[in-house]
Amino acid sequence: MLTKGDDYPIHQTPEPIAYAGSDRNFYDRYFFNAYAPDGAAFLAVAYGVYPALNVADAHIAIVKDGKERCLHASRILGLERMDLHVGPISIDILEPLMRLKVSVAKTEGIAGEITFEGRAFPIEEPRFVRRNGPRLFMDYTRLTQNVRVSGWVEVDGERIELSGWVGTRDRSWGIRPVGAPDPQPTPGGTFAQFFWQWSPLNFRDRSVYYHINADADGKPWNTRAVILEDGAGPDGGFHTEAATMAMELIPGTKHARSGVLTIPMDQGAATVKIEPVATFLMRGIGYGGDWRHGGLKGELAVAREDLDCENFDVADMGNLHIQAISKATLSVPGQPDQRGVGVFEQLILGPYRPLGL
């Protein structure tokens, strides 16, 4: 079947672009977030296509005053990957790798027009490859880009102007578990441990990025830290795989009370102190819950969901994956400190001995 994508030089197999190889877990996703300079309000958007499942879905969530108001949408893809809309949520690529726009037609009290403009050329994170026993669990690439944000969102009649907001967008594609889980377990392939942190931070004239996947003993199997000045091109910035994050957990939880990122540099170590101020539950944009990515909901389904992101069950598996909206202080030897804002994403499943888990 030929589709609009076949007229673009983006094929990845000898077949038409509608087909993405043989792995049913292939996905292609957009993610966006944005936040007020003081962290008092936050929004996130996810948009994914799952070619082998023939599903597309989209989500938007707005966090304010301890409440997370979410709009979910899912549709049958119909093999056409170039129509970037699901129900009321759509994406326009205004300038590839630099400016994208998310539109939400008013539905269930939520609407918006949000433009994300890159502060520098996106960074490419190291390719994520991980096996779970004999099966390929992850194999994907992600680009990440901090952004300046403009436009507005409306929630239940309250219009929020986004002037002065900043945030992050990413694009990832490849293989991850999506849709319904496999009904037949694989001997030797039991998924028992996962440690993940991701912290893109916005400062006055630069961005800091950090992520880590580690095993139960704290040994990283994928990690990178980047300090990137505004306007930098594809080869810009300082990159290292030697950064470390020290964190203090909130008692009785797997979520951070605070964190200190240390980035070794030629002139001495830079540090970033991270102070969470609010919580965004990732289930609000399809990371788990009833609206998990790639789930089949029929020809078209749209629904609103409201979550309490201040008083929630910390032991509920669906609430483990969060982004903590955070204030941050960057200290680089020989330079004045800079204060900024960003997120501290966290997901800890199973044991992680460096934190006593």
Results as ranks from 00 to 15, higher is better:
residue 217 D to W: 11
residue 218 G to P: 11
residue 153 V to T: 14
residue 279 T to A: 13
residue 209 Y to R: 05
residue 51 P to C: 10
residue 17 I to P: 00
residue 217 D to F: 08
residue 89 I to M: 04
residue 277 V to A: 12
residue 247 M to R: 15
residue 166 V to H: 10
residue 182 D to P: 03
residue 228 L to H: 05
residue 225 A to D: 09
residue 193 Q to S: 12
residue 222 N to Y: 01
residue 63 V to Y: 03
residue 54 N to K: 12
residue 210 Y to G: 05
residue 8 Y to P: 00
residue 312 F to Q: 07
residue 105 A to T: 12
residue 248 E to K: 15
residue 167 G to Y: 01
residue 50 Y to C: 09
residue 88 P to S: 11
residue 2 L to A: 04
residue 81 R to W: 00
residue 314 V to A: 15
residue 170 D to M: 10
residue 5 G to P: 02
residue 134 P to G: 05
residue 326 S to Y: 03
residue 102 V to I: 14
residue 14 P to A: 13
residue 303 A to S: 09
residue 252 G to P: 11
residue 3 T to R: 10
residue 246 A to C: 13
residue 49 V to K: 13
residue 169 R to P: 07
residue 138 M to Y: 07
residue 260 V to A: 01
residue 187 P to L: 09
residue 347 L to R: 12
residue 87 G to L: 06
residue 6 D to S: 07
residue 37 P to A: 13
residue 230 D to C: 11
residue 300 L to E: 04
residue 238 F to W: 06
residue 27 Y to N: 03
residue 1 M to P: 12
residue 327 K to F: 02
residue 353 R to A: 09
residue 298 G to V: 04
residue 181 P to W: 08
residue 16 P to T: 10
residue 162 L to V: 05
residue 353 R to C: 00
residue 83 D to A: 06
residue 60 I to H: 10
residue 111 A to Q: 08
residue 41 A to G: 11
residue 123 I to P: 01
residue 60 I to D: 06
residue 121 F to W: 15
residue 41 A to M: 11
residue 113 E to V: 13
residue 329 T to G: 01
residue 264 P to N: 03
residue 29 R to S: 08
residue 39 G to F: 14
residue 107 T to P: 00
residue 158 E to I: 09
residue 225 A to E: 03
residue 149 V to D: 01
residue 142 R to E: 15
residue 312 F to E: 05
residue 153 V to K: 08
residue 310 E to R: 13
residue 65 D to Y: 10
residue 139 D to N: 14
residue 340 G to V: 05
residue 273 K to F: 05
residue 247 M to S: 14
residue 289 G to R: 12
residue 180 A to E: 12
residue 261 L to Y: 06
residue 18 A to L: 01
residue 189 G to T: 05
residue 87 G to C: 06
residue 201 L to E: 10
residue 201 L to N: 05
residue 206 R to K: 15
residue 236 G to I: 10
residue 259 G to H: 04
residue 351 P to T: 02
residue 316 D to Q: 11
residue 104 V to P: 01
residue 207 S to Q: 15
residue 296 L to Y: 15
residue 182 D to C: 06
residue 337 D to P: 05
residue 283 R to Q: 14
residue 231 G to R: 02
residue 294 G to D: 12
residue 12 Q to M: 14
residue 279 T to P: 03
residue 146 N to Q: 12
residue 257 R to G: 09
residue 256 A to P: 03
residue 233 G to E: 05
residue 324 A to N: 10
residue 61 A to M: 07
residue 145 Q to E: 14
residue 51 P to R: 05
residue 350 G to V: 09
residue 266 D to S: 14
residue 84 L to D: 08
residue 174 G to A: 03
residue 340 G to L: 09
residue 4 K to F: 10
residue 48 G to N: 06
residue 249 L to I: 09
residue 341 V to N: 09
residue 347 L to E: 00
residue 116 F to T: 06
residue 33 N to L: 12
residue 94 L to S: 04
residue 96 P to S: 10
residue 155 V to D: 00
residue 333 P to Q: 07
